[in-house]
Design a protein around this nucleic acid. Structure first.
Lengths: 214, 214
DNA sequence: CCGCGTCTTAATCAGTTGATTGAATCGTCA
DNA sequence: TGACGATTCAATCAACTGATTAAGACGCGG
């Protein structure tokens, strides 16, 4: 698991960055309640006091992890987000966004796990993190979708579409035993990953089609 | 939250059943690590000793909850599962299964939360529960899909299709703050639920279409 | 060399956790 | 009445939790 992280991003230099990266891994695999500060510190080869030196509490560290994750997602998606003066075709934009999202999640296996975890947590107290970082990028895309007036985008509910895409990509990259059983292998195996990636990208135009019965 | 449960199934009579139902709610909203046996017992208005009288440990209770949930899902889906001598059209079967699944999850809000939680947990130790209860029903459907040789099902990867359906339905019914923000309301509001339900059912034939670029 | 930010060490705090004990109580069925 | 399963009660156990304290050590720029 350490190797996957190294491949995805540069090894953290400072102690603070190393704790943050380790906390991301532990929180992703065990959740907030399942992970203990002592375990995180131990996994990062760092004293617990160092952890509390940089962050006020476990909760602070937890949301620092998410802040960091969201920043990286937005950065990864920045190139694919449509600009006001945009020449690419809709299909190009959407397929590229889907592909980028998929590749990023595949290269950073902790991210889909964390996002899915956050999706189930229901304390609305800390919704700010998503609101401030993720929502703006999301809104750009939704506005762009709505403004495209000719088929095949017209008549499609932008909200439902994007939640579907978001959800499907997320789900396929949570490498659970259930998915491994059904798919007959890990999504992080090269061959299978390519197949799933192709499937998901080809899924987008299908979803965007008008319903025949509507 | 208690009212939704009452609507979905009859109020549990025995103490054991009441503990099980309460544990399902608490585990669904707080997860295994986040829930304490004391809290479950208190919520069920029962002494902790009663809990340990019926179940050996917290973990035993946890998987008893899942055993129960899986049984109910299979039972709810039983009527929609295609029989060997089946006269209904493919579209009918699939749309009915999708609708049934959606309605059951909507009426039992704890279920999608639990399933999604279980999807992230990565200790493969207790995969047996799913293997024994859920996998058989799943296999019936997959075999049936594969055996349907004429379009529009031919050429579609049954595994990827079913995981997609499974995932999308699950995700839409986890009533997270994120989804509430994006959708502008709870999925458990009647009007919105109807819209999402229609969208999802109409999604199925789209997904099943052959890719134009394939 | 001094000072400052970083980090370590070790000890300790009160609270919660899952689990167990042994005795007492309740209802019901024979 | 008696026996038995179900349930309660109060107390206790060791282990772990997040967090804090105070003292010291390291390295680096001024």
């Amino acid at each position: 698991m350490r190797s996957a992280l190294k491949k995805a991003r540069a090894a953290p230099t400072s102690t603070k960055a190393r704790i943050l990266a380790t906390a991301e891994e532990v929180f992703a695999s065990k959740g907030f309640d399942g992970a203990s500060t002592r375990e995180i510190a131990a996994a990062a080869a760092v004293n617990i006091s160092s952890l509390h030196y940089h962050w006020e509490s476990k909760e602070t560290l937890y949301f620092a992890v998410f802040q960091n994750v969201y920043d990286r997602i937005v950065e990864a998606l920045r190139g694919t987000l449509p600009q006001p003066s945009e020449s690419r075709s809709r299909h190009e934009v959407i397929e590229q966004a889907m592909g980028t999202l998929f590749d990023y999640f595949a290269a950073n296996p902790t991210v889909p796990k964390l996002l899915l975890r956050r999706l189930i947590e229901n304390e609305s107290g800390h919704a700010d993190v998503e609101q401030q970082v993720l929502a703006p990028a999301w809104r750009v895309f939704a506005d762009w979708m709505r403004s495209a007036s000719d088929p095949p985008l017209a008549g499609i509910d932008a909200h439902l579409f994007m939640l579907t895409v978001e959800g499907v990509v997320l789900l396929y990259l949570v490498d659970s035993h259930h998915f491994r059983t059904v798919l007959g292998g890990s999504v992080h195996d090269t061959a299978l990953r390519r197949r799933v990636r192709k499937y998901l990208i080809e899924l987008v135009p299908k979803i965007l089609q008008r319903s025949r019965t509507a």
